[in-house]
Amino acid sequence: MNRLKRRTFLKGSLATGALAIAAGSGLLRPTEVLAASWPKDAFAGKDLQSAIQALFGSSDTQDSNAIDIKAPLQAENGAVVPVSATVSLPDVEGIGIFVEKNPSTLATAVSLSGASAYYSARIKMGKTSPVHVVVKSKGKLYSAKKTIKVTVGGCGG
């Protein structure tokens, strides 16, 4: 069991390392990485800061009330939590949904090229956690968060 875990971990970190080298050596600029392939290192980020850093190239976020997160206060089933975000900021380039206490913090992200600043998805949540929505607008990062309670066991509390 332990060995299995170590093996997958090694595999994961190797692949992430290769991508990081490619990004670091200037072969691929972060935006190109985002557009060209699945951002593996962003999804591998274990904490909020590093996941945001890997996805948007910076973790310097600013709290904003222009981001409207629609999500249940309490989710009875953590396997299906509907979350949607409406953003009233100009020139939104990307929206990312991060669940702070999930094994991999980044749940999903979208890069927009013409669509309105809106994104919705159904996500999985391991336990009660703040859900952060990070938005890139005019090269700056804005974020908002909402805590969603997850009741495991299905009694509904």
């Binding site: 396997a79 749940a107 979208v110």
Partner: peptide, 13 residues
């Protein structure tokens, strides 16, 4: 193309 989404394992079934 108007949007491109990246999905992780934390997206529901």
């Amino acid at each position: 193309q108007v949007a491109e989404a990246d999905l992780g394992t934390a997206v529901s079934q």
